[in-house]
Amino acid sequence: MLVRLIGLALLLGIAALGYRWWQGRQGMVRRVERPGALGVATLGEQPGKAATFVQFSTPICAKCPPTAVLLKRVAGERADVKHIEIDAAERLDVARELNIMRTPTILVLDSDGVVVARMDGAPSEAQVREALAAVPPPNEYSI
């Protein structure tokens, strides 16, 4: 009995620590260097003129709908920023190629459709703005 009680306390302690570690990483903005642009074939629609939030969701995801609301609101502040949502469970090929492990994951594209940053797990509004600020301004001379 005593052994099982100690085992239970350990189990809950480890679970709580693991949870805190996992939550701390949630939404963290990471710079990405990935050659090649994402186009209409992958996204299903035209990316934004200056930047795009590409949100990967699944139907089994409690944080995905509120994250979509947040991203739509921030993207809606500018005409040249767009929010595109992709069902990762349906587009498993894309999820594998882009290394999507959890939902929501948000890729941030620059004006050319190149991934410049990503957030794994639901971000806060500050993190969303930080990610958007990481996008370099459109290159006037790009073709």
Partner: peptide, 28 residues
């Protein structure tokens, strides 16, 4: 039994949905 304890602990105490994290990995 331990799996059930951990999952229900995270959900009831922290509101954390463990299944949401596992779903895509399972699907993949």
């Amino acid at each position: 039994t331990g799996f059930v304890v951990v999952a229900s602990f995270l959900n009831s105490v922290f509101g954390f949905c463990l299944g949401c994290e596992i779903y895509l990995l399972l699907k993949r």
